[in-house]
Amino acid sequence: MAAGGDHGSPDSYRSPLASRYASPEMCFVFSDRYKFRTWRQLWLWLAEAEQTLGLPITDEQIQEMKSNLENIDFKMAAEEEKRLRHDVMAHVHTFGHCCPKAAGIIHLGATSCYVGDNTDLIILRNALDLLLPKLARVISRLADFAKERASLPTLGFTHFQPAQLTTVGKRCCLWIQDLCMDLQNLKRVRDDLRFRGVKGTTGTQASFLQLFEGDDHKVEQLDKMVTEKAGFKRAFIITGQTYTRKVDIEVLSVLASLGASVHKICTDIRLLANLKEMEEPFEKQQIGSSAMPYKRNPMRSERCCSLARHLMTLVMDPLQTASVQWFERTLDDSANRRICLAEAFLTADTILNTLQNISEGLVVYPKVIERRIRQELPFMATENIIMAMVKAGGSRQDCHEKIRVLSQQAASVVKQEGGDNDLIERIQVDAYFSPIHSQLDHLLDPSSFTGRASQQVQRFLEEEVYPLLKPYESVMKVKAELCL
């Protein structure tokens, strides 16, 4: 049975990233139509530049190519590739079939990587351009969430054990800070992308030097003109047959890092959902379990974690691919890159769409948070109580021993009897502590235990987050809708 299948058929496997999760716009960027249309555009740009620099290419040939950029006979191309065992030459023939007058000058002087690699770089750039505003929107939604809850005390956790208090907004800023680093890295790697350009079979530009009869300047002009037509500021000066596969490492490393950030955020949300302090959106008709109707599973956060793990592992592909590119190139890269580049971007696209949807509907339960604080705060307040007693004339050592005994009794009630923490009640009825009984409410005010959390939130948002989001103001209103 021949390899390949009808990918629109229910009898043929289709990647869930495309069929179930990723956005239509990201799927289109990695589609065959987008790819092969870009090949034709690159052939047109090459012909236009070659004509401008004096090669015998007519206006009629150029116009014929322009008129057929979208006229792609995919069936013919597939048949040609089956016959020739070469995808680029299959599309040269297919393009030439609908451009008979231009057929002889299509791909003039070029090698397969002229269309293959340059198209990949265009796709990487455009895919990054799709991700950047999506990530900015996630940051914006979380920034709104953090600002609104900047002063809401909550129990902090280290080692997932109760620690000092923080605020809900401050905790959210930990998430935002990681995503801001990801946004900066995505922008950097996007701006650092260079075009492969017009380089020939081993990167020496020998074929173009021959076409222009040894004119170095025209060869350099050709490279520059096509690079500018493709919208790049610069091209690699040095290439082998391909652009260095280190570029793929750079791009997928940034995406993998984004995956790590999203995994951490969504894990926190899942843990908070278990504590009943916070939940992701839950639709009115949504079913959490087929057997347990009360369940409210954090399905979206779980999906993000599941896909983020996949995204983090994909960076190993370009690392290994770059390491086995012998001399000017081997074909070890080809099949692998067809999979890992598309999957990385479709996965990143999915987790950003999902995280935006989550961040637009996060639900906080202040009463649950308050109750958990009441359970733990008495123990945390013991040092403040000791200091207040010393100020009232008591002995630190005597007070410490009193607190120690009462704390152990209260802990026994919590752990052995399943009761509430009654340390404060014990202190309130103990005559030894009568000098500070009137101060206990103040000493137990949760806001006095959150330090500068709310001020940190305000400063972080104003100095770091809002300036970073400013270039994306025009796209901030787009909502994230999930079908599944």
Score class of each variant (00 low, 15 high):
441 D>R: 09
308 A>I: 06
349 D>Q: 06
61 Q>L: 07
291 A>I: 02
350 T>D: 14
462 E>G: 10
120 D>G: 07
182 D>L: 01
316 M>F: 08
388 A>S: 07
55 L>V: 10
305 C>G: 09
370 E>K: 09
251 V>L: 13
52 T>D: 12
450 T>Q: 07
287 I>C: 14
257 S>M: 09
333 D>E: 03
341 L>Y: 12
101 K>Y: 11
410 A>F: 08
53 L>P: 02
481 E>K: 13
58 T>R: 13
79 E>N: 10
194 R>L: 07
100 P>D: 10
380 M>Y: 05
203 G>D: 01
407 S>C: 10
400 H>Y: 06
383 E>W: 05
245 R>G: 01
86 H>V: 02
352 L>G: 04
332 D>Y: 00
146 A>N: 14
44 L>C: 12
231 G>M: 07
103 A>M: 12
225 M>A: 11
71 N>L: 10
111 T>F: 00
145 F>R: 04
179 L>D: 05
42 L>M: 06
350 T>S: 15
112 S>T: 01
74 F>A: 11
335 A>I: 03
184 Q>E: 13
299 M>K: 04
135 L>V: 14
308 A>D: 00
260 A>N: 07
424 I>R: 14
204 T>S: 14
290 S>P: 03
390 V>G: 04
193 L>P: 01
105 I>S: 14
339 I>L: 11
95 F>E: 00
128 L>P: 03
402 K>M: 01
250 E>T: 11
162 P>H: 06
418 G>P: 03
248 D>N: 02
254 V>Y: 09
28 F>M: 12
465 V>W: 03
56 P>M: 13
302 E>D: 06
420 D>Q: 05
451 G>C: 05
47 A>G: 08
202 T>E: 01
274 N>V: 06
169 G>K: 06
35 K>S: 05
406 L>N: 09
384 N>A: 15
443 L>D: 00
436 I>Y: 04
188 R>L: 04
125 R>I: 05
67 S>V: 13
53 L>N: 06
479 K>T: 14
280 E>A: 05
152 L>K: 07
314 L>I: 09
399 C>L: 05
242 T>Q: 03
37 R>A: 15
130 L>T: 13
196 R>N: 09
400 H>E: 03
74 F>H: 09
412 S>A: 10
275 L>P: 04
187 K>W: 07
436 I>C: 04
233 K>Y: 10
39 W>K: 00
201 T>P: 08
61 Q>E: 09
23 S>G: 08
184 Q>F: 08
388 A>V: 04
397 Q>P: 02
29 V>L: 14
152 L>W: 08
419 G>I: 15
409 Q>R: 10
288 G>S: 07
53 L>W: 01
101 K>V: 11
445 D>M: 13
476 M>P: 15
378 P>E: 02
183 L>H: 12
240 G>F: 05
36 F>T: 15
422 D>Q: 07
2 A>E: 09
427 I>M: 13
294 Y>L: 02
285 Q>E: 11
96 G>P: 00
149 R>A: 08
318 P>G: 07
317 D>G: 14
454 S>M: 11
118 N>L: 05
391 K>V: 14
392 A>Y: 08
212 F>V: 09
14 R>M: 15
444 L>A: 03
50 E>C: 07
456 Q>S: 08
198 V>N: 09
6 D>V: 09
458 Q>R: 10
471 P>Y: 15
161 Q>E: 00
441 D>H: 10
35 K>A: 08
74 F>L: 13
295 K>N: 05
431 A>P: 13
420 D>Y: 04
292 M>S: 01
195 F>Q: 00
38 T>N: 00
149 R>T: 11
212 F>M: 11
177 Q>F: 09
88 V>K: 00
454 S>K: 14
15 S>A: 15
322 A>H: 14
242 T>R: 00
316 M>Q: 12
327 F>M: 13
206 A>L: 08
103 A>L: 10
322 A>Q: 13
186 L>V: 12
419 G>Q: 15
445 D>R: 14
217 H>I: 12
83 R>C: 10
81 E>C: 00
163 A>G: 14
250 E>C: 10
463 E>A: 10
101 K>A: 11
192 D>W: 10
34 Y>F: 13
334 S>G: 09
398 D>S: 11
433 F>V: 05
245 R>H: 06
55 L>C: 11
340 C>F: 13
342 A>S: 13
138 V>T: 09
421 N>A: 08
5 G>D: 14
453 A>E: 07
327 F>C: 13
380 M>E: 09
203 G>Y: 05
187 K>I: 12
103 A>S: 09
448 S>C: 13
217 H>W: 12
129 D>V: 08
317 D>S: 09
369 I>V: 10
400 H>R: 03
43 W>H: 14
476 M>H: 15
146 A>V: 06
98 C>E: 12
125 R>K: 14
264 K>Y: 03
157 F>L: 08
174 L>E: 08
215 D>R: 11
204 T>C: 08
423 L>Y: 08
125 R>S: 09
384 N>P: 13
212 F>L: 10
303 R>T: 04
114 Y>Q: 03
166 T>A: 04
216 D>L: 07
299 M>W: 00
161 Q>D: 02
439 Q>F: 05
352 L>F: 15
409 Q>D: 08
212 F>Y: 05
121 L>A: 10
37 R>T: 10
93 H>C: 15
361 G>F: 14
287 I>F: 02
343 E>D: 15
102 A>V: 08
460 F>P: 01
60 E>P: 09
49 A>L: 01
117 D>A: 01
385 I>Q: 06
29 V>C: 10
7 H>S: 12
332 D>Q: 02
363 V>R: 07
111 T>S: 10
282 F>H: 13
435 P>R: 09
278 M>E: 05
313 T>D: 02
195 F>Y: 12
446 P>S: 07
47 A>L: 04
239 T>F: 03
164 Q>G: 01
254 V>N: 15
79 E>D: 13
161 Q>W: 00
190 R>I: 09
448 S>E: 14
181 M>F: 11
361 G>S: 15
